[in-house]
């Protein structure tokens, strides 16, 4: 039995009075590809945002690589983690956002190089070479000196993926990465994710509305509904053979 790289134990999250997540239990093994589907507002994005430390859980534990993410031991008691602890754990996690969030004051190459250079303090020549290789891999070798504002949405999202990959994360999070794109640009971004999923051995968690894509690349699909995991299993189990009514309704609306 391989130790899971990410574990959620009874994780709850509320924003003010609204309970978004009501007890999430989840294991993700290294190199596992997990797709999270579900109606909007079901808390899909919140799950990965908590893992990226962008939101703090209201209760429960998130374990990353054997370390409790949001809590740390102090004088024998578990206390709320401070920034130093979060930074140490966060280093294994990378994220791609719905709205790209590229740095507009840096060129494409600088966007990729800045974190390895200034966060990991790696040697510049090596970082540059790795960044160029990664940009080549996402098909943007000819754009390295341009600024984000000069690119299309699909190209921006591919840069965002290269930028995250250069950090060599063990866990990659994709937050509805095609939702902000024009339909004709979705394909090129999915193609890159497919390539990463096939060739890289990191764990991937994708929040997505692309059902066929999820079916295609995910080892495990989670159906999130009203703050709980209502159904989980292999892609074909969940998407094709589940008897969960809410899920059927959801899929039906999607394919209609």
């Amino acid at each position: 039995m391989i130790e899971p790289i990410v574990t959620f134990q009874d994780v709850h999250k509320s924003f003010g009075n609204s309970k978004v997540l009501k007890g999430i239990d989840l294991d993700i093994r290294p190199a596992e590809k997990v797709a999270i589907i579900g109606p909007s507002g079901s808390g899909k994005t919140t799950i990965i945002r908590m893992l990226m430390t962008l939101e703090e859980p209201t209760s429960g534990d998130i374990i990353v690589n054997g370390t409790n993410l949001w809590k740390m031991e102090k004088k024998g008691r578990l206390v709320r983690a401070h920034e130093k602890h979060l930074r140490a754990v966060r280093g294994d996690i990378g994220m791609v956002f719905q709205h790209f969030n590229l740095f507009p004051h840096m060129t494409i190459l600088e966007n990729c190089m800045t974190a390895p250079l200034h966060v990991k303090k790696e040697p510049k020549a090596e970082v540059k070479q790795r960044s160029l290789e990664m940009l080549d891999r996402v098909g943007l070798a000819d754009k390295v000196d341009q600024y984000p504002s000069q690119l299309s949405g699909g190209q921006k999202q591919r840069v965002a993926m290269a930028r995250a990959l250069v950090m060599r994360p063990k866990i990659m999070l994709f937050d509805e990465v095609t939702s902000a794109l024009d339909p004709e640009l979705v394909g090129e971004v999915l193609q890159v994710i497919r390539d990463i999923a096939k060739n890289d051995d990191m764990a991937m968690i994708l929040v997505t509305h692309e059902m066929d894509f999820a079916l295609d690349i995910a080892d495990k699909v989670l159906f999130l509904d009203e703050g709980v995991i209502a159904e989980q299993g292999s892609a074909s189990e969940v998407i094709e053979h589940s008897s969960n009514e809410r899920l059927q309704e959801f899929l039906h609306r999607f394919r209609a």
């Binding site: 430390t53 930074r87 966060r90 996690i93 956002f97 590229l102 974190a115 950090m167």
Partner: peptide
Amino acid sequence: GKGQWEAAKALNFSKRR
């Protein structure tokens, strides 16, 4: 924008950087 702060966090930048 808020997204810039989140990207900086996701790339694990220190406060100063």
